[in-house]
Each structure stands twice: as C-alpha cells, then as structure tokens.
C-alpha cells in the first residue's frame, strides 16, 4: 500500500476524534469524509445528520451535494428542512457540528462568504448555508481545513460563522452557551483553543510535519502547547477504508466513466 498523503491523514485524524455517542451535523466535503470514515471505523454507532433533513444516515458513497438521494435512501428518517433547523438544530439535539471553510482566524471564526469587501468581492464564495446557526447551536464544533497562509489568516475578511469571536469569554457575551470550536484538524497539525484566551494552539503534529512547516502555513504567529504530541500515522484499516470510500464515490459520481 502506498503511504498516506497528508490530505488522507487529515481525514483519518479528524475521524478518530468522533465517537459512537456523537450526534453530528455534517458539512459537505472533507467533514463528510471524516464523519463517514468514523462511522466505518471507530464510531460505528455515530448518528450523522445532514441539513437536507436526513437523520441517522449511512451513505455507502460520499454525497456530492448535501441532499444526494443516497442520504435519504439510507437515513432512519427524513424531515423537512424547516423542521431540521428548528426542532433538531435549534432544539439543541446535536452534540457536534463538523465544518470547513475558506478562511479561519486564530479564534476559529470561519469565512465562507467573500474574499475582499462584501459589496465589492475579490472572490465571491458560496455563503453561509447552515453554518451560522450550526456554529452556535451544536454542543461543540470540529473544523477540518487544509492549512496555508491564505486560509489560516490573521483576520478573516468576513465572519460567516462565530468561533470564539475576539477570544476569552466573547461567546458568552453574545449570549451563546455552547462550546464552539474545540478542535481544528489540518493537513499539518491539530489545534485546540487555549482554555483562557481561546486562541488556537498547536497540540499535535501529523506524521512528518514540523513546527517550521506549521508556522509557515499560518498567517499569524502561531502558538504551540507546552507538550506537542506526535500523531500516529493511519493504520492499514483506516487507510484502506478511506480509499475504498473514495473509490466507491468516484465510481458513483461518474468520474472516469
């Protein structure tokens, strides 16, 4: 077997953070890959919820969109989108939200709206979708994002969804009682918010990654925890399961057909 790429390792590390007790609101893309890998490996009883209304879904292939038929066909039940956001998300039934984004800052505020000014965009991004309320209604938030100075920035151009605001007790000041981002997994490292300042701090390095590489890929002077752990590489089972999932997905979406 060829060794894991950093992108594959990132998904594996994110998947390891989930457990069978989690009720997880899943974003599309890498969050969806991580959540389904978790379901197929260490967290077989995890409940996955997608904003299309599909509850406890068990897709055999990764959905391209948030509402692929595969999600409904394999769900325990499918509710309306109004009900999803009112009873289930706002109702406080979801323990973890899994998000990605185009930009993140040191307090894990996310931008998926716009690069440049809102009214005169340099790049117009898709927008928030479910994220603004996922970020405040889920018990806690996990984030998965490829790390570069363009994505890990000193200041996000637009706060699409709240992380820890400007740090400290900012969430509480806004009346938000949920924990917010507690874990950020990148292709280089794992970051967690400092308990006091809430600034993201590197707590572990992915196999082969160095402090210098992390510093170079971060748009602010990034801090490291007193003890930085080394994450074990993906096991053969994790890697094979992930690659099979990607291969089934590519075949189902007509890639290379």
């Amino acid at each position: 077997m060829t060794p894991a790429t950093s992108a594959e390792t990132m998904v594996v590390v994110a998947a390891r953070a989930l457990s069978s007790d989690d009720i997880c609101f899943v974003g599309i893309g890498q969050p969806s890959a991580a959540c389904n890998l978790a379901r197929l490996t260490g967290a077989p009883d995890i409940t996955l919820i997608y904003e299309s209304g599909t509850i406890a879904t068990e897709p055999d292939v990764l959905p391209l969109s948030i509402g692929d038929g595969e999600l409904c066909n394999t769900a325990l039940t499918t509710v309306s989108v109004s009900e999803m956001f009112r009873y289930w998300l706002q109702g406080g039934r979801v323990t973890k939200g899994f998000l990605g984004g185009a930009q993140i800052d040191r307090f894990a505020n996310l931008n998926t709206t716009v690069i440049g000014p809102y009214d005169k965009p340099k790049t117009r991004l898709p927008g928030g979708g479910g994220a603004p309320e996922i970020a405040t209604d889920c018990g806690e938030i996990y984030i998965i994002m490829k790390q570069s100075p363009r994505s890990f920035v000193d200041k996000v151009d637009f706060v699409t969804s709240l992380g820890h605001g400007r740090g400290g007790e900012d969430r509480a000041r806004l009346g938000v009682t949920t924990k917010g981002p507690t874990l950020v997994v990148t292709d280089l490292c794992v970051m967690k918010p400092d308990p006091g300042t809430k600034e993201l701090t590197v707590t572990a390095l992915l196999p082969g990654a160095t402090r210098e590489a992390v510093e170079k890929a971060t748009g602010w002077p990034v801090k490291f925890a007193g003890r930085v752990e080394e994450i074990p590489p993906p096991t053969d089972t994790e890697l094979t399961t992930l690659r099979d999932l990607y291969a089934r997905t590519a075949a189902a979406h007509g890639d290379g057909a």
């Binding site: 109004s82 309320e133 699409t160 969430r171």
Partner: peptide, 24 residues
C-alpha cells in the same frame, strides 16, 4: 427555512435563535 414557515403560517416575520456573532 424559518421565513418560509412564517410565510406559510401567515405571520409577518420569523423569529429564531440565529446570526449570533455572524456578520451577515
């Protein structure tokens, strides 16, 4: 989603716990 439900319910506006800390 709330605004459509409010429309269906013939209410003038939707109320929900949202947009906290969000720049929209």
């Amino acid at each position: 989603a709330n605004a459509y439900a409010a429309g269906a319910a013939n209410l003038p506006f939707a109320v929900f716990r949202g947009y906290r800390g969000a720049e929209l």
